[in-house]
Design a protein around this nucleic acid. Sequence first.
DNA 1: CCAACCGGGGTCTGCCATAGTA
DNA 2: TACTATGGCAGACCCCGGTTGG
Length: 389
Amino acid sequence: MSIPKVGGYWTSLGPRYFLCMRSNFLFSSRWWMIQFSSQILFKSVSLRLFGVKCDNEDGEPLKDKLLSNLSTMGVDVDMAKKRQPGVFNRMGISEQDLKMFLLSKGASKEVIASIISRYPRAITRTTEHLSKRWDLWRTIMTSDLEIVNILERSPESFFRSNNNLNLENNIKFLYSVGLTRKCLCRLLTSAPRTFSNSLDLNKQMVEFLQEICLSLGHSDPKDFIRKIIFKNPFILIQSTKRIKANIKFLQSTFNLNNEELLVLICGRGAEFLELSSDYAKRNYINIKERLLSLGCTEEEVQKFVLSYLDVIFLGEKKFNAKIDCLIEEKISISQIIENPRVLDSSISTLKSRIKELVNAGYNLSTSNITLLSWSQKRYKAKLKKLNIG
DNA sequence: CCAACCGGGGTCTGCCATAGTA
DNA sequence: TACTATGGCAGACCCCGGTTGG
């Protein structure tokens, strides 16, 4: 049996659903099966290691002792060794210290095992270091539980660096650019990696954003920084290269003037800046081709995408599927581009609503289609009335 | 009362490459 | 020359409801 990579259960649902997918996995029987089989595997591995020199009083090799302890704790040793083999060749590691520390902060045994399986280097940190780092995080977060939740989600962001001074300086720096504690809390929750970036990297991004701001003729860079970071808490974990490319794409595709661009990247377009290389371009080309083939003009396409930038987040397959599903019901392309938010709804919502509406005698090709994207509550109320009337 | 308009909310990791370090 | 610290990458929606204008 092959052990799946932890990052391997990516789904078409996207990054925002990652957490939910992972926790389902953690508590599924499949997880336990893997735990079980890795223990069997571990036994055979340790037999093969029989010749390793003995360093402790019981005569058991230290490395074996560590591995067996971890295994007992429920750590997926195979996965851990594959990820960071170096960790297991070191001497003087106390996995018990980490365990005790995290237990004292309210983490469950399962969470601890999962953390070590995914980021083994965690066990090389000393209690003193952990304690200091935790306290620094606690200056931002109000409870230990919140931190435990972040660690469960993203162990790497807490454990990857052992430079607590850098962390401290980052916190000072972020306050100094005008962010509030609330904003830092948001950053730490959403993009914890921000805080293990080097101070220099964070400074680079902030300076880069300030330059953009000034080059676009904004008079108050500090205000701009506050706005853009609050609006887009992930921006500090992107590369300036990526942000640059996306801004360039916006500029070249939509002929925006400076002010329009400023408003866009601090507002609706904030998330757009995170898009990975060429993704925007790829999707835009697909959207354009599809709409042109359905009889839209270039201007209409541009106007449509700009009025509803979220459409760029839709992969080609999904975008096409949604359009197909609407067109099949004799909804015209002009209805769609005039009411772009109908594309907000999932394909299954679109399908079920279309079916219900048709059954209720609602003529989608002549009536308004915005109700396809209304909130459930509003939609249900409307449907009820249609069925009565 | 109704629906169009509009903004907001949740939420980003795990892996790899490569300098740097002891 | 192992091992560590750090940068950077791909990946790819859906739903809710306040306000406003009729």
